[in-house]
Amino acid sequence: MTSTDGADRGVLLVPGDDGATGVVLRAANGTARAAAMCALCRTTHSVGGVGLFAAPRSGAKGRQGDTVGTYICADLSCAEHVRVEKATAALKPAPGMTVDERRAGLRERAAEFVAAVTA
């Protein structure tokens, strides 16, 4: 994931059989006021490390304002966070899982989110 203009937008790129699919994300105002877990990388963050992001649905639903949202790392660094070997004060990866298992889980959940947006 990458930030496009700094604070409130980003792009989620998910590889697939037919190439990568990109989804533009918009951050809701504010971040979680307590420790929270990212729904994509399943990394637990301290206060402010997770925010609500939404993407417009594709097609007519999106043109009518329908969106899909989920809680994602506020810095959009899920791909980096799943590579953390040991927990730190700021990042706590899912315990008992290897980096490869966390990476596979991130790919799967990101693809599910994109599928919900494009359905």
Rank of each mutant, 00 (worst) to 15 (best):
G19V: 04
A87C: 02
A90Y: 02
G96K: 08
A54D: 07
T43A: 00
A110C: 07
R63Q: 01
R26E: 11
G59R: 12
G16L: 11
I72G: 06
L40E: 10
G19Y: 04
R57Q: 05
A89R: 03
C41W: 06
K61C: 07
A110K: 09
D66C: 06
A110Q: 00
T31Q: 06
H45A: 00
T67C: 14
P56F: 15
T43P: 02
L91V: 01
K61I: 09
G69L: 05
L91H: 01
A35E: 04
P15T: 13
A36P: 00
G69Q: 03
L40D: 05
A89P: 00
M1T: 10
M37E: 09
A32V: 11
L40T: 15
N29V: 15
V14F: 11
V68W: 07
A111P: 06
R83H: 02
L12H: 14
E108I: 10
R57V: 06
A34T: 13
R109Y: 09
C38R: 12
P95M: 14
R102Q: 03
R83W: 01
M1G: 12
G30T: 11
T21N: 05
T70K: 08
M37Q: 08
D17Q: 11
T43E: 02
T21F: 06
A104S: 07
C41Y: 00
V84K: 05
G65M: 14
R26Y: 14
G16H: 07
T21L: 15
G30Q: 10
N29M: 02
R33A: 13
E85T: 01
A79S: 05
V23Y: 03
A89I: 04
R109A: 13
R57K: 14
A32E: 10
T88W: 08
E112N: 15
R107K: 09
G62C: 10
A20N: 03
A32S: 10
P93S: 00
F113K: 01
K92A: 07
V50G: 03
S77D: 06
T2V: 02
A115C: 13
S77K: 05
R102M: 05
R26L: 13
V50L: 05
G30E: 09
K61R: 12
A39H: 15
C78W: 03
K61L: 11
H45R: 07
L25M: 07
Y71V: 03
A87G: 06
D8H: 14
R26N: 15
L25N: 03
K61D: 15
G49F: 14
D100R: 13
P56M: 11
H81W: 02
E112W: 11
R109L: 07
G30H: 11
L40W: 06
E108P: 04
V99Y: 08
A89N: 01
V68N: 08
V68D: 02
E101Q: 09
R57A: 09
T118R: 12
S46M: 08
F113V: 12
S3Y: 08
M97L: 07
